[in-house]
Amino acid sequence: MARAFTPKVVTANALLEGDVVYLTARRTWSRSHADALLLTDEAEAAVRLLEASAQRDRVVGAYLADARPGPNGPEPIHFREVFRTRGPSNYRHGKQEATLAHV
């Protein structure tokens, strides 16, 4: 029996800066995982990934990553995806740097 589909988000890297981005419900790209569209239907996930991959002037290497619903929006599951939401652990660079700037 095929494995049951688990919820996903579409993620990629922005073409110009390389920063991690997520596909939103409005088919735009957000830097924040919480803004991502959580895809619970396998067929829709496949279509959204194809659409995202076609935006080749905006993003690079789109793929589906496991996620789950959270109080503030979708949350990553795998530790690699958790790191992608914030940046490296040795310096406050990447997304966590931007978060600091807003505080």
Partner: peptide, 14 residues
């Protein structure tokens, strides 16, 4: 072409 010139796309950036 970018790899021939040492440019990778990594986890958070190029």
């Amino acid at each position: 072409l970018r790899l021939m010139n040492g440019l990778y796309l990594q986890l958070h950036a190029y």
